[in-house]
């Protein structure tokens, strides 16, 4: 009989979690700026372009990505460029807005010659159903293990009382 109750709790917890899960995608633009790129979590996003400068190359070109919600410095990398053109590919792992800054640097003086910042909107996804089910199963299993331990303790105490020959008083 007690397994029926357990099954009921299991089913109930499962339904609640599935119904309350929300897609954490940022659909609207919080900052009011125009979005330059639409990237997706789980996929590489390629940036290609060219920065114009009056000075002649070769230059150093820096890619710098910042997550806007907490100003986290996600990625900074440098490459050389003869004419100011660039190509970088990276994945944004968080479904939040990011600022990507491309800077053209004079390698001799380390001065920034040209710079442009673009806004990247990243589409986030809900964890796959398989992962959710698995996690729920693990957590419920923890409760199940606890229940078995609790049951075992009572059974052991009863067994001990029985071997002592005493009557069962119902703990």
């Amino acid at each position: 009989m007690q397994y029926k109750g357990l099954l009921f709790i299991l089913g109930f917890a499962f339904i609640i979690v599935l119904s309350t899960s929300v897609v954490m995608a940022h659909d609207n633009n919080d900052s009011g700026r125009s979005v330059d790129h639409h990237a997706e979590v789980g996929k590489l996003y390629s940036f290609e372009g060219k920065l114009e400068a009056e000075e002649n190359g070769p230059y150093e070109i820096q890619f710098h990505a910042v997550r806007l919600e907490d100003d986290a410095q996600i990625l900074t990398m440098k490459n050389t460029s003869e004419d100011g053109s660039y190509q970088f590919a990276a994945q944004f792992f968080d479904g939040a807005e990011h600022d990507v800054t491309f800077s053209l640097i004079n390698p001799a003086t380390n001065k920034v010659i040209a710079e442009k910042t673009e806004l990247v909107e990243v589409q986030g996804f809900d964890p796959p159903m398989f992962i959710k089910v698995k996690t729920i199963f693990f957590l419920v299993m923890m409760i199940g293990i606890g229940m078995l331990l609790g049951m075992g303790v009572i059974k052991l105490r009863r067994q001990r009382q029985r071997t002592k020959g005493g009557a069962l008083h119902g703990i």
Binding site: M142, M147, G150, M151
Partner: peptide, 15 residues
């Protein structure tokens, strides 16, 4: 906490 919760539930229900 989950294991403790399960333990208490198992203890009470079995008793």
């Amino acid at each position: 906490i989950l294991v403790l919760f399960g333990f208490l539930v198992g203890l009470i229900l079995t008793a």
